[in-house]
Amino acid sequence: MTATKANLRLGVIDGDGIGPEVVAATRAVVDEAIGAAGLAPVRWVPLSIGHDAIAAYGNPLPEQTLTALEDLDAWILGPHDNASYPADLRVAPGGVIRKRLGLYANIRPAAAFTGVRAMAPDIDLVIVRENSEGFYADRNMFAGSGEFRPTEDVAMAVAVITRQACERIAHQALRLARGRRKRVTVVHKANVLPMTTGLFRDVCYAVAEQYPDVTVDDEHVDAMAAHLVRSPAEFDVIVTENLFGDILSDLAGELSGSLGMAASLNCSDTRAMAQAVHGAAPGLAGHNRANPAALQLSAAMLLRWLGVRDNNSLLHDAADRITHAVAATLAAGIATADLGGLASTSEFTEQVRARVHRR
Rank of each mutant, 00 (worst) to 15 (best):
M273Y: 07
T240Y: 05
R289F: 03
L330G: 03
Y136N: 03
A190L: 08
C204V: 08
D213R: 14
P79R: 00
T323D: 11
P212T: 06
I13T: 00
S313I: 15
V203M: 06
I169H: 03
R309K: 10
L77W: 00
W305V: 07
Y85K: 09
E167S: 15
V29Q: 05
R90H: 14
A170L: 11
R27V: 05
D138P: 13
A56T: 04
D73S: 13
Y104G: 05
Q275K: 13
Y136H: 03
A276E: 01
L339S: 07
T270H: 14
D269R: 13
G179C: 04
G78T: 00
T215L: 15
L255E: 07
I169Q: 10
R100T: 11
T345S: 12
E32L: 08
L243I: 06
L47W: 02
S256A: 14
H227T: 02
M261H: 00
M141P: 06
A354E: 15
L8G: 11
Q64I: 13
P150V: 05
N82C: 01
A33Y: 05
G95A: 12
L199H: 06
R168M: 09
L10W: 01
D124T: 04
D218R: 04
K182R: 14
R90V: 08
N106R: 04
L314F: 14
I238C: 12
V356W: 01
D250F: 07
D16I: 02
A56R: 08
A252P: 10
A263M: 05
G134Q: 06
Q164L: 11
G38I: 12
L297R: 10
D31L: 07
N59S: 11
